[in-house]
């Protein structure tokens, strides 16, 4: 190798600025080949992350300045619309120039919501429709999980396997040490098989959490929640949290959608909340009703209309299958909801 050739080898370094919701900024240098998350981790920047493989979406950020490329092969949980708007998963993206990325949570979030491991014991196990199980469980006495944000999830280890699956709590922090989940049971899947074949009251499951940056932002603006299927669970936690915080003076719309009537669940729970909160408007949507149906006959997001957007700062939470999340985001943005005020939870069933 001649000396002239050596000079031609460029060492690509970029300055990455991580900007948190509380205004705190961290600057770090990214070398070629390093993901943004690598940069954050090696410089102790408190970016939330969990799976490291692009599937959990915890490590999401939004590019404010500069170019950030993505490893599209590994991209699993970012919506195409999110991608277009500049959202990136830090674990699968790379600084291609000096850049500024925004994290939609305060810099203290990871410290305040440290995950811990424990065990839960199932107290109640109830089939709430043909394919959904409601589990009420109690954390072990020595569990460290004393806090979580409404909307966050935990991982549960499927008994008899080494597999972990993620589920959002439908209960609130106030109910700890009791936690409640709604879990969809598929024809095949380790958790599904367990729930269908073996699960029983008294079973112990390992739990790890809380995780996620899909959580209730307590801004005093109208709230829209769009849930598909068991995507209702985090919304129930958020609604109860809003209720307990006496959030009564701005509208809260919950659009809960399923394909068929038989897929609905938790209707009695929702009705009670409808009675307790005068500002809560629950829209139960069935897109393919089989019999007479007097609720909304459409996909959940389509129950939201222009009349519902009364405040430019309206905040929206989406939790459903990727296609729903995608369509709901586009729909809300077309109605004038700001992209940065739309929070999306990846939804997977297993």
């Amino acid at each position: 190798m001649s000396s002239s050739e050596a000079v031609a080898v460029e060492i690509v370094e970029s300055k990455v600025t991580f900007r948190f919701k509380d205004g705190v900024e961290y600057e770090a240098i990214s070398s070629e080949g390093e993901t943004l998350l690598d940069v954050a981790r090696s410089n102790e920047v408190p970016v939330i992350h969990q799976c490291l493989t692009g599937s959990c979406a915890s490590c999401i950020c939004k590019v404010d300045e500069g170019d950030v490329g993505m490893d599209s092969d590994r991209l699993m949980s970012l919506l195409p619309s999110e991608q277009r708007e500049g959202f990136r998963l830090t674990c699968t993206s790379y600084a291609e120039s000096d850049c500024v990325v925004d994290l939609d949570y305060p810099s203290t979030f990871s410290e305040d919501h440290a995950a811990s491991q424990s065990v839960i014991t199932i107290n109640e196990l109830e089939w709430v429709n043909h394919n959904t199980v409601r589990i009420e469980a109690e954390l072990a006495d020595d569990a460290e999980m004393e806090h979580f944000e409404a909307g966050q999830y935990v991982q549960l280890k499927v008994p008899g396997t080494e597999e972990w699956r993620s589920y959002s709590m439908s209960s609130t922090e106030r109910e700890l040490p009791e936690v409640t989940f709604y879990i969809r049971v598929l024809e095949e899947g380790v958790m599904s098989n367990y729930l269908r074949d073996r699960a029983a009251v008294g079973d112990e499951l390992e739990i790890d959490g809380p995780y996620g940056v899909f959580y209730l932002r307590e801004e005093k603006v109208p709230q829209i929640m769009i849930a598909g299927g068991t995507g209702l669970a985090p919304m129930m936690s958020m609604i109860d949290t809003l209720r307990l915080k006496n959030f009564r003076r701005k509208p809260v719309i919950l659009a809960f959608g399923c394909s068929f009537e038989k897929d609905l669940f938790a209707q009695d729970e929702l009705e009670l909340r409808d009675t307790w909160m005068r500002n809560l408007d629950i829209r139960t949507c069935v897109s393919r009703p089989e019999g007479e149906w007097d609720g909304y006959n459409c996909r959940a997001q389509l129950s939201i209309t222009q009349d519902d957007i009364t405040d430019p700062e309206t905040v929206a939470y989406l939790c459903g299958p990727p296609a729903m999340n995608e369509a709901a985001r586009e729909h809300l943005e077309s109605l004038g909801v700001k992209g940065e005020n739309i929070h999306v939870e990846l939804f997977e069933t297993a």
Binding site: L244, K245, N246, R248, T275, W276
Partner: peptide
């Protein structure tokens, strides 16, 4: 009381 209150004291 559950239905008619204007807020729960924290």
């Amino acid at each position: 009381a559950s239905n008619f209150n204007r807020g729960i004291a924290q």
